[in-house]
Amino acid sequence: MDKDSIDRIVDKYHGEASYLIQILLEIQSENNWLPKEALKRVSDKLDVPLTRVQHIATFYKAFSVVPKGRHKVHICVGTACHVRGASRILDTVEEATGIKPGETDLELKYSLETVNCLGCCALGPVMEIDGKVHGKMAPGKTSDVLKNYE
């Protein structure tokens, strides 16, 4: 992510330190993660110590200080999905993508994450990709769904 796009986001909030989280969220959504250079730039522009920016960027789960893939794959392993076989869904997704929960593949295509409930237990087991819910998953169906995301 280049300096100009960071500056543009910071300037949109008139460089006000109280908008730090909003600014970080916007960088996160444009870039998928928060590189150290970006944190440094935000810290300089807002005149907020880098330690504080770093603390906030590592505190919230919405932020990532390591690269994330283009598609966020969330597998629900909450109680309802678990009893309906979420672990087998997870196994097949791990196999198809070659990554474990919390990891991102080398091509930055997928980031895999387990979540504890997506609130649609009737659809379980549930897999969510980029916010879109894929319900009533079966181990055989996961790779077909993943195929649609490049």
Binding site: P49, L50, T51, R52, Q54, H55, T58, F59
Partner: peptide, 30 residues
């Protein structure tokens, strides 16, 4: 962390992460 920020005003050290994973960490450049 607070001494560095409040007395020395250098902010060379800060907290990262939260909960059971919270730790102190220096900013290497500073």
């Amino acid at each position: 962390v607070r001494y560095c920020a409040e007395v020395k005003k250098k902010n060379a050290i800060g907290f990262i992460d939260r909960g059971i994973r919270k730790e102190i960490s220096f900013i290497p450049e500073i």
